[in-house]
Simulated assay, not measured.
Amino acid sequence: MAHHDGAAAVRPLTRAWVSRHLQAGERIVRAEALHGGITAEMWRLTIGARDGGARDLVLRTFVNVEHAEDWLNREAGALTLLTGTGVPAPGLVAVDPTAAHCECPSLLMTRLAGRPVLDDEGLETRVPLLARQLVAIHALRPAVRPRAYAALTTAGTVVVPKGAHAAAWAAAIDVIRGPAPRCAGRFLHRDFQPGNVLFDVPPARPAGARITGVVDWAAASWGPADLDVAHCAANLALLHGPAWGLRFPGAYEEAGGVLAAAASERLYWLVRGGLALSEEVRSVSQPWREAGRAALTTRAVEERLDAYVTALMDAPG
């Protein structure tokens, strides 16, 4: 939904805070709500200058969200770290993690060109691009490491879909009952998936697609590369079918990425990635439908998740 009454669409205190971080002579002339996020309100702000020029910023606001301060501090830290690395991330403009100035905890950043592409068409081109981008992220060696990853899903929190293959799910849940494998740490995005990657796709040449940005760094952390790969693989499985989830680890390795050496360790992370989404099927599928994937009902996504988890448990090795 676009708001054409300019700055009035943004809460008054937040509007004033944004204005204090603009250049001399600039003002908010338009605000447009961006859809697709799960935990935060997102606004595209058009900033007008006295000479008639304009630029866009993005405002991210958490409303009644637990841990908002932590997430915004982590995102601000990640955006600062990523400056000049070659990873196409937004630039940090300002952050108010405790709502000291705004109505709600907020972060202001530059806007990147491109858009998430969630269609099946062109996937053969985009998956290798996703893999290469994730390898580049994992190659970063920050002077100050972010905090260690948190794996919130447990054997007791998994939500088994109705009608799922009971034996496969029971076996999958048993996989994550044990301790996590010891793996080398890497800089993780922690929510790397098609909805958080921006593409430029020439209308007449889908094969010419290129990545223009990676967004939503609020969960950036330190941990095994397998964790990011598993999360992206599970999202691909739900968005485009289980076969695409099964293919992604191979694409990551073809791009130069290194995964856990033992098959059992790889399985642990892949299973954990799939089971984690069992708790979020409704929340992840709604933005996909809003983006035009109307067939991805909650039930349809549950069925794909069941097929993916079953395929992981049936895979040889």
Rank of each mutant, 00 (worst) to 15 (best):
W288L: 08
A209K: 00
R205P: 05
Y268W: 15
H240R: 10
A8T: 14
G52L: 11
L92S: 06
Q23L: 02
S221D: 03
A295N: 07
A243F: 06
S19R: 14
V87F: 12
E265P: 10
R147I: 11
P249C: 00
A131L: 02
G317T: 02
V159Y: 00
A255T: 11
A243R: 08
V214N: 02
P179A: 08
L129R: 04
P249D: 01
G274C: 08
T46W: 12
E302K: 05
G77L: 14
G317D: 12
Q133M: 15
G317M: 09
L92M: 09
P242A: 06
L34Y: 02
A251R: 13
A113E: 13
W269G: 06
G122F: 06
I137W: 00
A171V: 05
P146K: 10
Y268S: 09
G257R: 13
A261R: 12
A9I: 07
Q133S: 15
G86V: 04
A49F: 06
L22A: 07
W217R: 03
D306P: 08
L129C: 05
A294W: 11
A276N: 11
F248S: 05
E279L: 15
G52P: 07
A315K: 11
L305T: 03
H165Q: 13
I211P: 04
A204H: 03
